[in-house]
């Protein structure tokens, strides 16, 4: 019986050998996207559209902007979706590996500051938000709300949204309060804020729904108009990074945000067109 098993195993190995040779042909025409959870909805929608239209397989992983950059540097993805620009260190690391990262702007995103709908606070200034995240303001009473301790929610260090937030609101190199809670994706920030009465967090505009309340920053609410003309103070571009100027189907994919249909998808997802 063992001999029979060995025979079967051998057959399997031969089959595997065949598939290896077949794989060499199949590898052509797959686009691998890795990176930001904020860009995720756009990347996933584009992927489905692209596969349907051109028959090219596209896979999307949402592991965070930092991981997207690392994947591109290691050559393990064709497009890195990022919700922040690549840092000088990352570009340097890429160059030493012979990778030349090129930024392609997909869309613009307003970083919405969100609280629980029960929170009567309607708006905060940038300075107030900064103080909240640095732990100087710890009670909603100090900013015109009810007497409740503020539950501060931030994103993990790998997140491009976290970096954009620090850069645009809290100020670069600012130490965020140690009592801040860390969530690993836009979705989990949203579910945490929507279930915690006294929480504050930040989300990509495409992730906001009725379960949370957007508050104005410096008196401006994020929407298509204020993000586009830059009056909303926490606005940032979203990127698809590629290695060098893309060609072939990757180029076609990168250019989707410039097509009429791509623009429609972006705006239906709640992001703002370039």
């Amino acid at each position: 019986m063992i001999e029979l098993m060995i025979k079967k195993l051998l057959q399997l190995l031969i089959l595997l050998a065949f598939t290896v040779t077949a794989a060499a042909n199949a590898a052509v025409g797959t686009i691998v996207i890795d990176g930001s959870t904020t860009v995720g909805p756009v990347a996933k929608t584009f992927a489905a559209y692209f596969t349907k239209k051109y028959g090219v397989r596209v896979t999307v992983s949402e592991s965070g902007s930092g991981n997207g950059a690392k994947s591109l540097i290691n050559g393990s993805c064709s497009i890195a979706a990022m919700s922040r620009a690549m840092k000088a260190g990352e570009i340097g690391a890429a160059r030493t590996k012979g990778v030349n990262p090129v930024a392609n702007i997909v869309a613009y995103d307003g970083l919405a500051m969100v609280v629980h709908p029960a929170n009567p606070v309607r708006g905060l200034s940038k300075a107030q938000i900064s103080s909240i995240y640095r732990g100087i303001i710890t009670n909603w009473r100090e900013v015109g709300g009810p007497n409740a301790r503020i539950v501060v929610i931030q994103r993990e260090s790998n997140s491009g949204t976290e970096e954009s937030f620090k850069e645009l609101v809290a100020g670069k190199g600012v130490q965020i309060t140690g009592s801040a809670e860390t969530q690993s994706s836009n979705g989990s920030v949203k579910s945490r804020v929507s279930t915690t009465l006294s929480a504050i967090g930040f989300l990509g505009l495409g992730f906001v729904d009725q379960s949370v309340k957007i508050i104005a920053v410096n008196g401006v609410l994020p929407n298509v108009i204020t993000v586009k003309n830059g009056t909303y103070p926490v606005t940032r571009p979203l990127y698809f990074y590629t290695n060098g100027q893309p060609s072939g189907s990757v180029k076609q994919f990168i250019e989707l945000p410039k097509t009429a249909e791509g623009k429609r998808m972006i705006s239906e997802l709640g992001f703002v067109n370039h």
Binding site: A23, V32, A47, T51, T59
Partner: peptide, 23 residues
């Protein structure tokens, strides 16, 4: 599999793609 194989969206792959495609 988070970092080695899994993606959040992708079509079903054939047996021939196991060497090149995440799933």
């Amino acid at each position: 599999i988070i970092f080695t194989a899994a993606v959040s969206v992708g079509s079903a792959i054939g047996l021939a793609d196991v060497f090149s495609s995440p799933t």
